[in-house]
Amino acid sequence: MDTTSRAAAIESCESILRKEYQYNKEKEIWSTINKRIEGLLARTNELADVYVELRGSLGEDYRALKSFFDVLNLTVYSWNPGKIKDARQDREQLTDLNIRIVEAAKLLSDLISRRTEVQEISSFRSDTYYHVIDVVRDAAESNGLFSSHVEGKLENLTYQYDLKYWPSISEVVSAIGANAQAATTVARSPAASAATDARRPGLSDFLRAFEAALDENRVRRHGFIPNKFSVSNNSTASLINCALELEVDDLIDGSFVKRFRQRERERKVGQVKVD
């Protein structure tokens, strides 16, 4: 490629980054992404070959090229190694909380049931909830919309149907525990799933999230990135090194990306066979 064409490729890509930077600055948003964009714009020499490749693949379609950089910047923001570590911890915490809720609900349900039994057979009572609607009413005490639109209707139902038509408070608590016990912790997006599925954390997590985000923005999913578009191994490595601002000891190369993609192909083939 001659010097003029190379310069045009670099300009077409960096122009998109500069426009994104300026828009974010004017709107006073995405300051973290703007810092990443500054980093990319400062590393033109390292990314020049990447820009040439992108211009060759997507240069005729501005929306596709812009979409690519949007995906890159948002993935770096959302699924950089620090965010992935936090996401893994969130997943583990959510699973642990559901386990603890099951245990707490069982204990609380048993205690409420026992309290009801004691009150029914003894000469004493405690001034505690009797009807499940009492719980709902007190819980919604500070909710003006509830008191304005819902409370009156619930009151009518309370008096229209006696206690045998309603679940007991202990049964409601048991249902909360059963719900937590049956819960499965799942990711909200393909990128979240891709970034945290592996047993051991590493840069492959980011790569997996990036490629999942690209797939979510392809034409077949009503995006702008062509269905068959892909970035070469070397260019992908350069993008990740620069976008994540990796230290020298953490830098990856094209062979790292090649091995990752080979493993992903094998994993997907294995999933198809299992299905």
Rank of each mutant, 00 (worst) to 15 (best):
T4K: 15
S15F: 07
S15I: 15
I16R: 05
K19R: 14
Y21K: 13
W30D: 12
N34Y: 02
K35F: 08
E38F: 08
G39H: 04
L40C: 02
L41A: 06
N45H: 15
E46C: 12
L47F: 04
V52R: 06
E60Y: 09
F68D: 00
L74V: 09
Y77M: 09
W79R: 04
N80R: 05
K85T: 03
R88D: 11
I99R: 12
I99M: 15
S109F: 06
S113M: 06
S113T: 10
R115V: 14
R115Q: 13
V118R: 10
Q119C: 01
S122Y: 02
Y129L: 13
H131G: 10
V132A: 11
V132E: 06
D134K: 04
R137N: 13
A139L: 14
A140C: 15
A140H: 05
N143F: 00
L145Q: 15
H149T: 11
G152I: 03
L154T: 13
E155L: 11
Y159L: 06
Y161R: 08
Y161D: 08
P167T: 01
I169Y: 01
N179W: 11
Q181W: 09
A187G: 14
R188S: 14
R188Y: 03
S189L: 14
A194H: 07
A195V: 10
D197N: 09
R199P: 05
P201I: 00
F210Y: 06
E211P: 01
A213H: 10
L214G: 01
L214W: 06
G223Q: 08
A237K: 10
N241V: 00
E247D: 13
D250T: 08
L251H: 11
V269E: 08
V269D: 03
Q271S: 08
V272T: 12
K273E: 11
